[in-house]
Write a protein that binds this DNA or RNA. Structure first.
Length: 702
DNA sequence: GCAGTGTTTGG
DNA sequence: CAAACACTG
C-alpha cells in the first residue's frame, strides 16, 4: 500500500535501509497536508527538513521587511512542529545559490532523495528546473508535488485543451472538475536519523532598525501553520456567514485575513476548499442564502489566487509585462513626485490617502482599498503599474508576486477580462460606497477627523466655514487633489490615443521586419524602478554579513516616511531590442529561454533597467498566425493584437521543473519552433530527461 | 406589465 | 464572462 514513487532516476541502487530524503521547504511551511513531507515520511526512511534562504536570487523582488518578519516567525513555528513530530531541527542554509546549497546539503547528509512542493512564479520555475537537472545528474531522486493549488495549472484547460485566458471561465471549469484531493493529516512521526554533524546556518531576517517595527507586528499577527488553522477556523465560524454582505466595507474586521498564511503555504487551499464547501452545504440546507453566497464569494477569492498561479505559469512574464500587448505602448507618466505623494498618502483624495497610510502603518490593506489605491495610481496618476506593484511587494505582509501581478494587471487594463483602462473610478464615489460613514478615513487621516461625513470624501467641496470648524486648511494641513479627475480623464484619453498610434506604428514596422525574416520589433523596454525602490540592492549586503550593519538602515526608513527625494524625472531611455527573448532576459532575471547555460551572464546583466539587449541568435516571431484563434476566443480584438507580440505565444519561455502528465498530444496552436517554448509546447514535449511525478500521479499509485 | 435588449459592474 | 440593473417598446 505504500506509495511507491516509481523509482525513476539514477543512483537507484542506493541501500534501501539507509534511504534519507531531504524535504526542501519553501512556501509550504506546514506539516499538515504537505505532500512532499508526507511522501518522505511514508517511505519509513529518514527525513531531513531543510530551508534555504537565498533572497538575492529574487533580484528586485527581495522580500520586504514585513514579509521577512513573517517568514522568520513561520520558520520558527515550523521548526518547533517538526521537532514535536520527532524530526531534527529544520536544517537551514544561507546562500546565494540555492542549487549549490541543496547539492551540498544532500551530499553532507548522505541523502538519496529530494522532495519539494511546486511553486509557479517565474523565478521558481527556472530555479526548480535547475535543481532537478543538477541533482538528478548527481544520482539523486528528485520528486515534486502539488501543495499550493487545488489543481495544477496544466490540469485546467478549456474544451479545446487550451489554457483559459479569463478568470470566470477558468473558475467555472475548476468548480466542475472533480473535487481536489482531501487534505492529509500531519505525519505521525518523522525520523531524521543522526544529523548532529549537519550544522545549520543562522538566518537573519531583520536588521536593527527593523526590529522595533517588527515587534509591533507580533501584536497583530501570529504566523505559523497552527495559527493559520486557528485563524481559518475563526473565519469560517465567524465572518464567513456574513461575507457576502460585509465584504465591501473597508474595515478589515470582516475579511478572512488569511492571505499571509496562504502566501507562505501555512494553510492548505485544499483544506480551505473542503471546509468552506461543507459550510456551504450546511447553509444551503438551512436555506441561508447569504451564507451560501458568502461561501461562493470566498471560494472565488481562493480561485483568484489559484488563477494568479495559473497566469504566472502560462505567462512567466506577467509580473512585468502586460498580457494585452498594446498596453506596452501606453505612455506612462514617469514622475517620482507623484509616486512619492501616493506612497505617503498625500494625494488629496481621502480614501486613497487613508489606504496608503494604513498600508504604510500596518502592511495590510483591504482588498477593496487595494483596488482603489492601485486604480488611482494607474488611471489618475498614470504611473507605471510595475512601480505600484513593487511598492506593494515591499510593504505588504502578504506580498505575493503572482497575486499582485494579477491584481495590477487587472487594474491597469492589461488583461482580457480586466477593467477597461479608460474607466476612471471616482474615489469620492467609492468612498461613500466602501466607507459610508467616513470611519475608515477618520481613523487613518486624523487631520480630517472632525470633518462631517457629508464632506469627508470630498473636502475640496466643503464650505470654508465647515473646513474652519474642522480645523482644516486645504493645501496646508491636508492637500488639495494632486490631480483633478477631469484633467486625469482627458490626459488618459490622450495617452490612450498615443498608445494606439504607437501600437499601429509598431505593427507596421513588424510587418516589414517579418518580410526580412527577422524578429525585429520595437519592444518597449520596462521603465526602471525609481531609486527608492531599488534599496534592496544595497540592503542585501547587510544580510550577507553575520553582523548586522546599520549604515543603510536609516535610509530605508527615511525612504518611505520622509519626503526626501531626488526629484529626478527619470525618463526611461528607450531602446529597441533586436530580439524578444533577449530583451526579456536583459530586463529582469526571468530567462525566457531554456538556455540555462546563460544563467551566469543573465544574472550579471540584470540591473533593473533595460540593459542592452543581447543577441544570442534566438529568433522567433511566427506565432501571430497561430495565435489568432486563441486570441479570438480570449476576446482580444484581432486588430489590436494581430501583429503585436506579447500574448500567449512566447510568454511561456520557461520550462517548469516538473514534467506534467501526458498531454493530449494535439498540435499546439502557438508553438513556433524549438526555441519558442510556450507553456503548451512543453506540455507536448514531455521532458523525459527528468521524469517527475506530480502529486496526483503519486497518490494514484498509492 | 414585462420580455427582450442594452449597459454597467464586478474581479 | 455573467449577474444585476436599466431601459424600451
Amino acid at each position: 500500500m505504500s506509495a511507491s514513487p516509481s523509482s525513476m532516476s539514477g543512483g537507484a541502487g542506493a541501500v534501501e535501509a539507509a534511504m534519507r530524503t531531504v524535504v526542501w521547504f519553501r512556501r509550504d511551511l506546514r506539516v499538515e497536508d504537505n505532500p512532499a513531507l508526507a511522501a518522505a515520511a511514508r517511505t519509513a526512511g529518514e527525513v531531513v527538513p531543510a530551508y534555504v534562504w537565498a533572497p538575492e536570487e529574487d533580484g528586485p523582488y527581495y522580500p520586504g521587511r514585513v514579509s521577512r518578519w513573517w517568514l522568520s516567525q513561520s520558520l520558527k513555528h515550523l521548526d518547533a512542529s517538526l521537532r514535536r513530530l520527532g524530526a531534527s531541527r529544520l536544517v537551514t542554509r544561507r546562500s546565494t545559490d540555492t542549487v549549490a546549497a541543496l547539492l551540498e546539503l544532500v551530499r553532507s547528509t548522505g541523502a538519496t532523495h529530494l522532495f519539494f512542493n511546486h511553486l509557479y512564479d517565474p523565478l521558481s520555475l527556472v530555479r526548480d528546473h535547475r535543481v532537478k537537472e543538477v541533482l538528478a545528474a548527481e544520482g539523486i531522486t528528485v520528486q515534486s508535488f502539488n501543495s499550493d493549488l487545488l489543481y495544477e495549472p496544466w490540469e485546467v484547460l478549456d474544451d479545446d485543451g487550451c489554457p483559459f485566458t479569463m478568470f470566470t471561465p477558468f473558475w467555472n471549469k475548476c468548480l466542475c472538475m472533480v473535487d481536489p484531493a482531501a487534505p492529509m493529516l500531519p505525519p505521525k512521526r518523522i525520523n531524521s536519523g543522526d544529523l548532529s554533524r549537519c550544522p545549520s546556518d543562522e538566518l537573519i531576517f531583520e536588521d536593527e532598525s527593523e526590529r522595533g517595527s517588527n515587534a509591533l507586528l507580533a501584536r497583530a499577527w501570529s504566523p505559523g501553520w497552527q495559527n493559520a488553522d486557528k485563524a481559518f477556523a475563526a473565519f469560517i465560524n465567524g465572518p464567513l456567514i456574513d461575507y457576502s454582505v460585509n465584504r465591501k466595507k473597508a474595515d478589515s474586521a470582516n475579511t478572512s485575513l488569511l492571505s499571509p498564511y496562504l502566501h507562505f503555504g501555512e494553510l492548505s487551499v485544499r483544506k480551505v476548499f473542503h471546509q468552506v464547501r461543507m459550510k456551504q452545504l450546511m447553509w444551503s440546507n438551512e436555506n441561508n442564502h447569504d451564507g451560501e453566497e458568502g461561501c461562493s464569494l470566498f471560494l472565488r477569492s481562493i480561485g483568484l489566487r489559484e488563477y494568479s498561479r495559473y497566469l504566472a505559469f502560462n505567462h512567466p512574464c506577467s509580473h512585468e509585462k502586460p498580457l494585452l500587448s498594446h498596453l506596452r505602448f501606453f505612455p506612462w507618466v514617469v514622475n517620482e513626485v507623484y509616486f512619492k505623494v501616493w506612497r505617503q498618502g498625500r494625494t488629496g483624495y481621502p480614501l486613497v490617502d487613508a489606504g496608503m497610510r494604513e498600508l504604510w502603518a500596518t502592511g495590510w490593506l483591504h482588498d477593496r482599498i487595494r483596488v482603489v489605491v492601485s486604480s488611482f495610481f494607474v488611471k489618475v496618476l498614470q504611473l507605471p503599474w510595475r512601480w505600484g506593484m513593487k511598492y506593494f511587494w515591499d510593504t505588504l505582509l502578504d506580498a505575493d508576486l503572482e497575486s499582485d501581478a494579477l491584481g495590477w494587471q487587472y487594474i491597469s487594463g492589461s488583461l482580457p477580462d480586466g477593467r477597461e483602462l479608460d474607466r476612471i473610478d471616482n474615489p469620492q464615489f467609492e468612498g461613500y460606497k466602501f466607507d459610508p460613514y467616513g470611519e475608515y478615513v477618520r481613523r487613518w487621516l486624523p487631520e480630517l477627523a472632525r470633518l462631517p461625513t457629508e464632506w469627508i470624501h470630498h473636502p475640496w467641496d466643503a464650505p470654508e466655514s465647515v473646513l474652519q470648524a474642522a480645523g482644516i486648511e486645504l493645501g496646508s494641513n491636508y492637500p488639495l487633489p494632486i490631480v483633478e479627475l477631469d484633467e486625469a480623464k482627458s490626459r488618459l484619453q490622450d495617452a490612450l490615443s498615443e498608445m494606439w498610434e504607437l501600437e499601429a506604428a509598431s505593427r507596421a514596422e513588424m510587418e516589414n521586419g517579418m518580410e526580412e525574416g527577422l524578429g525585429e520589433s520595437s519592444d518597449v523596454p520596462l521603465i526602471a524602478f525609481p531609486q527608492e525602490l531599488q534599496h534592496m540592492e544595497v540592503d542585501r549586503e547587510q544580510f550577507r554579513a553575520t553582523i548586522p550593519t546599520p549604515p543603510t538602515a536609516g535610509r530605508r526608513r527615511a525612504d518611505q516616511m520622509v519626503p526626501s527625494m531626488t526629484s529626478s524625472f527619470v525618463r526611461a531611455e528607450t531602446e529597441l531590442s533586436a530580439d524578444f527573448g533577449n530583451s526579456e532576459v536583459s530586463r529582469q532575471e526571468v530567462p525566457s529561454q531554456v538556455h540555462f547555460q546563460q544563467r551566469v551572464e543573465i544574472r550579471e546583466e540584470v540591473v533593473n533597467d533595460g540593459t542592452a539587449a543581447r543577441n544570442n541568435g534566438i529568433q522567433h516571431q511566427q506565432y501571430n498566425n497561430q495565435n489568432t484563434q486563441h486570441r479570438a476566443r480570449a476576446g482580444i480584438a484581432p486588430s489590436t493584437s494581430e501583429a503585436s507580440s506579447t500574448w500567449t505565444g512566447r510568454e511561456g519561455g520557461v520550462v517548469p521543473v516538473w514534467s506534467p502528465p501526458a498531454a493530449s498530444g494535439h498540435s499546439d496552436p502557438y508553438t513556433a519552433d524549438e526555441t519558442e517554448i510556450s507553456s503548451r509546447s512543453y506540455l507536448d514535449r514531455q521532458p523525459q530527461s527528468h521524469r517527475l511525478m506530480n502529486w496526483s500521479q503519486l497518490s494514484q499509485s498509492s
